[in-house]
Design a protein around this nucleic acid. Structure first.
Lengths: 340, 340
DNA sequence: GTGAAAGCGCTAACAT
DNA sequence: ATGTTAGCGCTTTCAC
């Protein structure tokens, strides 16, 4: 490993004070262009690279942010992470990545650890902390962007970004109703999930807006995976053969529904239309390909990081402190073309 | 944001010197248990948390490592990242995540940035830098683990972890030969990929070991996605209907092959056996589910981080400085049960 | 067992 | 436009 060249080394070599070198490097203007050029040349020659630690200690800024996600191996979060890092990179920031693994203790430890590292800001995704603990912890940080988590009361220096699941669900069900479907079921995923509750609400709103009855027996909760969807769809379609369309909590459940249809001899989309959610890569690979609600996860990440940067650099929240992203309906072959 | 409590504050409060507080906190033993207890209690009471920056500056250790991947949104790397972070967390380290996005300039910038942040070690995945630049850059870091990249000549402080693609391919083709297949094709993926070349070599070795001829017309390169696999399989099976088994470069190509079979009316696995590679989540979801070579990406990550920790903490390479992980053959429904 | 002084590498604030 | 001083918060070294 190369020995570290310090600012003192460069100063000595250039025959100036450390301060002059510092000014040359940080390009604040308050230095004569001539000496700046000379010093930069010498610094480059000596392969001088400033120490982030020393600089951070002196300025109390680290050009570093923390990103806490439940699980980076989950594509939903890894795509967000990609968006975050892209923006961070473009602005000279580095990202600490921490997994909370759905464990409140580890999430708390992650936040402690980021505090010790003195990050300039925090991006916290899908926090599982209860409201009180969450607010308490967030106040430790100067700037925070909360992704996919609502905050009951505003906290200073905290912005939020969420997905409008209600509107997404309404969009999906509206589409099905417009296409002439009378009996639309909802495979609702985990009962305790906030997203599930919001989508249920959208489903209900849509039916109501079209003056259709809400039939509780057409709402089935299930595990958010292929098998859960398969089982739920099997019992649903057996008990209620009049169902002509299914809106699923996610694409895996939708895929399970597809399997159930194969087994029951129901053709998709002719006998049963299916809409999923998330637009995971699998959605376009199954046969028939799935109509689904796309959430642009990468965009979620870039937006979150941009918001955080705004907070950090302007010391105040951006115009839209609490943003809501809207899912987009991607039409594929698991629904029939719109009749109009 | 809470004002930072420093070690001086705690010292004043406890009526001792800063040094004593430091000793209490770092638990080096050289302090009377009584005062240590007292100080720790006071520190906790005051919610004192040491500054990572100050400590790092003083000790020249940051308890921080850098992880550079081509793209964290790629499941292959996000799973590695998960493994890395798990081990890092368990040992009190934090991880800087950087994407090189297949761009050598950005990869170089990532390494520069990590050097400025003074990471204790570096995990570099699938580096695209040429040998010379790579070695030059790596020497800047005290400790490095190179993942999925071979190093022509050993470099001090650098360990490597790779996947034995050759052995994996041999395993797959051996299995097919044992199952009685005579005519086995290889859908080889991108020609320039190292993995592809190694798997080709395994394919050849296996045929040779069983005394089978190598037929060049049964080796088709294609894009490593579903469509590439579909097209390649279509032309392969049309031109050579005698093929009874396909070994595919990855699971997406295998999935494309599956589609081609549906179209051509060839039953899988009865008319054609298929083996994929990687065991992506999709592999178990398609019908029939894919027999595939599983690479335990998460394990790759944990092993890499453990190796790096060993380097950092013992200041010397572990017994196995250059490791090779072996893919595991996961038997599913796209191949017939083994005849024995 | 505990403390005082010096320094890690840099920059803010004040000179000049 | 450039230099000086002091200090960011901690640990190392060497006294006591």
């Amino acid at each position: 490993m190369t020995k570290r060249v310090t600012i003192a080394d460069v100063a000595r070599e250039a025959g100036v004070s450390m301060m002059t070198v510092s000014r040359a490097i940080n390009d604040k203007g308050e230095i004569s262009p001539a000496t700046q050029q000379r010093i930069l040349a010498i610094a480059k020659e000596m392969d001088y690279r400033p120490s982030g630690l020393a600089r951070g200690l002196a300025t109390q800024r680290t050009a570093t942010v923390g990103l806490v996600v439940p699980d980076i191996a989950n594509p939903f979060f890894s795509q967000i992470a990609r968006g975050v890092e892209d923006i961070a990179y473009a602005h000279g920031y580095n990202v600490f990545l921490l997994n909370s693994v759905e464990d409140v203790d580890r999430e708390r430890a992650a936040l402690d650890s980021l505090w010790e590292k003195q990050v300039d800001g925090l991006l916290l995704c899908s926090s599982r902390l209860d409201q009180k603990t969450l607010v308490e912890r967030l106040q430790q940080f100067r700037y925070v962007v909360l992704v996919n988590r609502l905050l009951q009361t505003a906290v200073d220096g905290v912005c939020t970004i969420n997905v409008d699941d209600t509107a997404g669900a309404r969009q999906a069900v509206d589409y099905l109703l417009n296409a002439g479907h009378e009996t639309i079921a909802f495979l609702a995923g985990p009962r305790q999930s906030l997203s599930s509750q919001q989508r249920l609400s959208g489903y209900q709103q849509s039916l109501q807006a079209y003056g259709r009855p809400l039939r509780q027996e057409l709402i089935l909760h299930c595990e958010p995976d292929t098998e859960g969807g398969y089982n739920a769809a099997l019992s649903l379609l057996t008990a209620h053969p009049d169902v002509t369309a299914v809106y699923a909590f996610n694409d895996l459940i939708a895929t399970g529904t597809l399997k159930a249809c194969q087994e029951l001899g129901r053709r998709v989309p002719q006998d049963l239309a299916i809409i999923g959610s998330d637009d995971i890569p699998l959605a376009s690979l199954v046969t028939p390909s799935l109509t689904t609600l796309r959430i642009t996860k990468r965009h979620l990440g870039t937006t979150a990081m941009q918001t955080l940067l705004h907070l950090i650099q302007q010391s105040e929240p951006p115009p839209a402190a609490d943003q809501t992203l809207h899912p987009q309906l991607i039409l594929r072959n698991s629904t029939l073309p719109h009749p109009h």
